[in-house]
């Protein structure tokens, strides 16, 4: 038993390598099916709140049932959450998204922003 604390066992190394390979393969796969998205779907409390065109520059205010507010900005084909009145600000710090299947989620306010392609068949392939 004492020995096992000092060094990696062979099985540990296999496990770590396999997990990293799965992760990288997943990333490559996602990169491969990546397409410029067409529609920005905003969901609040699990229901579709608004559908916006990625090609149109606009700023949208999202207010949920409890009155919490998020502000979403679409500019030059990129979507960015610029404001949220939640406490963790994960969504505001999230990078801008532009590809099919990418999301920005504001967990506290239950707001989800998803990019769908116009033919929309690709989302499931990315998300599966």
């Amino acid at each position: 038993m004492g020995n096992s604390f000092e060094k990696f066992r062979k099985n540990d190394v296999y496990l770590i390598v396999i997990l990293i390979v799965i992760g990288i393969a997943g990333l490559i796969l996602m990169q491969a099916v990546k397409k410029q998205g067409g529609t920005v779907v905003v969901k609040v409390d699990g229901k579709v709140y608004k559908e916006l065109k990625l090609s149109e520059n606009q700023t949208v205010e999202i207010v949920n049932d409890k009155g919490n507010k998020n502000i979403l900005e679409i500019k030059d084909g990129k979507v960015d959450m610029t404001y949220a009145d939640c406490n963790n600000q994960v969504c505001v710090n999230h990078k801008k998204i532009m590809y099919n299947g990418e999301t920005i989620i504001c967990m506290p306010n239950d707001v989800i922003v998803e990019i769908h392609s116009d033919d929309d068949s690709n989302v499931d392939a990315v998300a599966r």
Partner: peptide
């Protein structure tokens, strides 16, 4: 959140 889209984070999180 009733969305499958979150699984796109899976590779990074693994």
């Amino acid at each position: 959140l009733k969305t499958k889209a979150v699984f796109s984070y899976l590779p990074v999180l693994i």
